[in-house]
Design a protein around this nucleic acid. Structure first.
Lengths: 210, 210
DNA sequence: CCTGGATGGATAGCGACACTCTCCAATGGC
DNA sequence: GCCATTGGAGAGTGTCGCTATCCATCCAGG
């Protein structure tokens, strides 16, 4: 266990905690007070840290994802089917955008966007609700201008998504597939956000000369 | 205050808490136990909730942003200059990607990307560090494939950023400008992430027919 | 063979965060 | 005149992600 800690930089008490929470499968016990940990454990631990540090997932959410990995009774397809929503809605999707004119408009705009994009049938996707909530907040604060940019954002998102799918294309291994979905999606968010910040900074420099 | 609570759906004790934390300026006192709250307070409260619910900012980070809004001694330019990094690095940027071959490669790749994009001079931007960290994690787990998609992501990010700048273009009001930067950047992240999920779902449907 | 230091397991504690509750004197409206 | 309501301040609550303490092993060096 000390070796595992040294290999990953994660303190021993934290490893014990992860074991308790089921984020990490127990090592093969060699004796009552000693267990063997292999490279799979090192890898898993790095996965957990990446999801927690950059993916913004809670320990409980990671446990949910990882439980399926350790359960040998599920196929790769089922794993992917479960992983995507788990990653898409890691926490409760905030307050439901209930009433109010802004919420109404937001719903309309989302419906219109889905239609324009040919994304019918995705109205019940959890991310559609998030989208509506965000839009409602923006409209409520009078940032109607985002509506004009919405299609540009959608375009950008679609471009990113097709890069995602291309990457996923040649992954066959079962454990890796889930890793790729989870990491690609979550770390991809952070990655895109970071890139957007950089692009903004660059453009702002040009525009405002400050 | 009851009216403020009714208008925004935020419970009264929470409003008191926000007042204590300086997220909300105090109302104009009419008597020792009564104060007047106007539409500006309603608006501010909605801003705070939007940043907290969808922007993922901590109360302390929001307080930092908002403090400048209430301070009349700063120009709009200074406000923007302060708002962008505050929004770009709301929390500590995770563990510094110190040693290891993966970290090394990540740094090289980021440098190469910045050069390709013509983003020299942004190497010290906090988001560049985040980018390096994310890449290091991905490489450490063997997801080298993302490197191929990196330019596509950058392209998408740049497209999103130019939509951002276009939106910001015709904002002159001082309080609004900060709102637009903060909301646009942070909620924009969530918005783009949601759109990407939808696009992924759509593409996955086509590809895997499941 | 014996002992000291590590191991694994379990339970309890800590600090941060975002509220939420309780109490209080001072109103304001009926 | 009186009683619910208000603003304000302090302490309390629940959750999260660890961290610290204990303890019965057990392996390795002398």
């Amino acid at each position: 266990m000390a070796g595992l800690s040294a290999a990953t930089g994660v303190p021993v008490p934290t490893i014990k905690y992860y074991l308790r929470e089921g984020l990490l499968p127990p090592g093969r016990p060699l004796a009552r007070n000693q267990a063997e940990y292999g490279p799979a454990h090192v890898r898993r631990l790095k996965l957990v840290r990446a999801l927690a540090d950059y993916g913004g997932l809670s320990i409980a959410a990671i446990a949910g994802l990882v439980r399926h990995l350790d359960d040998p009774g599920v196929s790769a397809g089922e794993l992917l089917a479960e992983a995507q929503p788990a990653v898409a809605a890691p926490e409760e999707p905030g307050p439901a955008p209930g009433s109010g004119a802004a919420a109404e408009r937001a719903r309309d705009q989302v419906a219109a966007l889905l239609a324009r994009r040919g994304w019918e049938g995705l109205a019940d996707h959890p991310s559609a609700a998030t989208l509506t909530g965000v839009l409602a907040s923006l409209l409520e604060l009078g940032l109607d201008d985002v509506l004009e940019g919405l299609d540009d954002y959608a375009e950008a998102a679609e471009a990113a998504a097709s890069a995602d799918v291309r990457i996923l294309g040649d992954v066959t291994d079962r454990e890796r597939a889930v890793e790729v979905v989870a990491l690609g999606t979550l770390l991809g968010d952070t990655l895109i956000a970071a890139l957007r910040r950089l692009a903004q900074a660059r453009l702002a420099e040009d525009t405002y000369q400050s």
